[in-house]
Amino acid sequence: MSTIKKVLLTLFIITTLSLAGILLYSWNRTFANDENLIGNTAGNIYNGGLFCEKDGIIYFSNDKDNGSLYMMKSDATDIKKLHDDKAAYINVDENYIYYIRAVDTKSVNSGSSLPFNNTGIYRINRNGEGLKLISSKPGSYITLKGNHLYYQNYDVDRGVSLYRNQTDGSHQRLLLIEPAIPAAVINDRLYYTEADSDYSISYLDLSSFTTGTFIEGDFAYPVFFGDYIYYIDRSAGTINRMSLNGTDRTVLVKEKCSAYNITNSGKYLYYQVNDADNSKLCRMNLETSAVEILMEGHFKQIHVTENYVFFKDMDNTNTYIIPADGKAKVSIFNPPDLNP
Score class of each variant (00 low, 15 high):
P115A: 12
A76V: 15
Y46M: 03
N307Q: 12
A20R: 08
L8D: 02
V92H: 03
Y270H: 02
S279V: 03
T77W: 01
A102T: 10
V291F: 05
A276Y: 13
N40R: 02
T210S: 04
G120S: 08
I79R: 00
N118C: 08
L252R: 01
V156Q: 10
I239C: 00
K64E: 15
Q301E: 15
T317R: 13
D65N: 06
N261L: 06
V185Y: 09
A259S: 15
T105C: 15
N307C: 00
T263C: 09
L9M: 08
L281C: 04
V103E: 12
D275Y: 09
T263S: 13
V108L: 11
G111W: 10
N47K: 02
S61F: 04
I262R: 07
Q272L: 05
N318T: 10
F311H: 03
K86V: 14
T41I: 05
K86W: 15
T143W: 07
I124W: 04
V330R: 10
L37G: 10
N261H: 04
F214I: 07
Y59D: 01
K73L: 06
I124N: 08
R164E: 11
L286P: 00
I215P: 03
L144I: 14
T143F: 10
G159Q: 05
S135C: 14
D275K: 14
T167G: 02
N109W: 09
L252T: 00
V304E: 08
R173L: 15
T143N: 13
Q272A: 11
N47Y: 01
G159W: 03
N334P: 02
T15V: 15
Y199H: 12
V304F: 14
E94Q: 14
R158M: 15
A324K: 01
I332S: 06
D84W: 05
G159H: 04
K329I: 10
Y154N: 04
S135F: 13
Y96G: 01
N91A: 00
V156Y: 10
V160M: 07
L176W: 05
L69P: 00
E216H: 05
G48L: 02
P115M: 02
F333Y: 10
G39Q: 12
L144N: 06
Y270G: 09
N28W: 09
Y308H: 13
E255Q: 09
D155L: 02
R101G: 13
Q172P: 14
Y203K: 01
D337Q: 03
Y228P: 02
E255D: 12
